[in-house]
């Protein structure tokens, strides 16, 4: 046998062995896969509904948040939903009821009014979590509200709830309009020319070291707006909506000629974006938000009724 023939014979033997091994292995695998399937599935789901009868507020939430907007409003404290970095306590039931009414009336229904309920349903965050206490950091700083990926908004200090416009805007609605703006711009981007207006002045994580008055003079509506252009866009939108025209004008005066001109330029981008992308007139939205807030703080809205 020549060396060439010898090699060919070895190759044939090797191929045969491989075929046997692969066939046996496949059989074993098939045997193994089917041999463990003799247990029937339990016909009882492991995910059982709560054994506690829903209270009147639960039913109200179901009707006015879950069915209306597909929003899960969590007023029962769930530490799995909360930030483990903070020591937190639950919210008062009656304060939660009031805040649920306020959020629905001043935030959700404001967007319903200017853009239609289907718009709100589609883009609003799907989880609202109420926490009674503030989130106090180890260094004594306090978190006002948090939003996670456009999906969940957590509102703190519910136990200190006051029917006062400044309180409600500072602790809740600036955050909520801000986060909602992020959701909108994630769905439809805004004109990237906006990013160039204050391109050289963004300071990232050092924003908290800036005084609000200095930020205004540099053309930012707030010191947080200085962190980066997306936050700048969201802050400009949120502040414009929660401020009355007089409050906005006062802020522009504080900003000075140069600062006000920059902020107004940014505002025009926001205004244009809202109109072209979402067919929302920003001034109309601002007026609706203001009117609804006035209704709440003046007591014209029943914030305690969960029967209707």
């Amino acid at each position: 046998m020549t060396q060439k023939e010898n090699t060919a014979s070895t190759r044939n033997t090797t191929n045969m062995k491989e075929k046997i091994i692969v066939t046996l292995s496949t059989l074993c695998l098939a045997f193994a896969l089917f041999s463990c399937s003799d247990k029937a599935l339990d016909d009882v789901s492991v995910f059982q509904d709560s054994t506690v009868e829903p209270n009147a507020f639960d039913k109200w939430i179901h009707e006015n948040y879950v069915m209306a907007y597909n929003i899960d409003l969590k007023y029962h404290m769930e530490d799995i939903e909360s930030d483990y970095n903070y020591t937190l306590v639950p919210a008062y039931l009656d304060k939660s009821i009031q805040l649920a009414h306020i959020v629905r009336y001043c935030w959700l229904q404001a967007y319903d009014e200017v853009a239609g309920i289907n718009f709100t349903r589609k883009y609003v965050p799907k989880v609202l979590h109420f926490v009674g206490s503030p989130a106090v950091g180890r260094n004594g700083t306090m978190v006002l509200g948090t939003a996670e990926g456009g999906l969940k908004v957590t509102l703190y200090m519910v136990n200190n709830l006051k029917l006062d416009k400044d309180f409600l805007n500072y602790y809740y609605f600036l955050t909520m309009h801000h986060e909602f703006t992020h959701i909108l711009t994630h769905n439809k981007n805004y004109d990237t020319e906006f990013q160039k207006i204050s391109e050289a002045d963004y300071i990232m994580g050092d924003w908290y070291q800036k005084y609000e008055s200095d930020a205004l003079k540099e053309g930012f509506i707030s010191n947080y707006a200085m962190s980066e252009y997306n936050e700048d866009f969201a802050e400009t939108m949120a502040f414009y909506v929660v401020y009355t025209p007089d409050e906005w004008a006062l802020r522009m005066r504080m900003a000075g000629t140069r600062g006000a001109a920059i902020i107004e330029t940014k505002l025009n981008y926001v205004r244009t974006y809202m109109k072209s992308a979402w067919n929302i007139d920003l001034d109309e939205l601002r007026d609706v938000v203001q009117r609804r807030m006035d209704d709440v703080v003046s007591g014209r809205i029943n914030l305690d009724d969960v029967e209707h």
Binding site: H76, E78, T87, V89, P90, L93, S133, V136
Partner: peptide
Amino acid sequence: TFDTYNPLLHYWSEPDGNDSDGFASDYE
């Protein structure tokens, strides 16, 4: 879990001013 605020119990669990943990007590 005592999962809505009860001032009698949660007094021991909430942050106190700048004290981020307060009395550091459980409500779960």
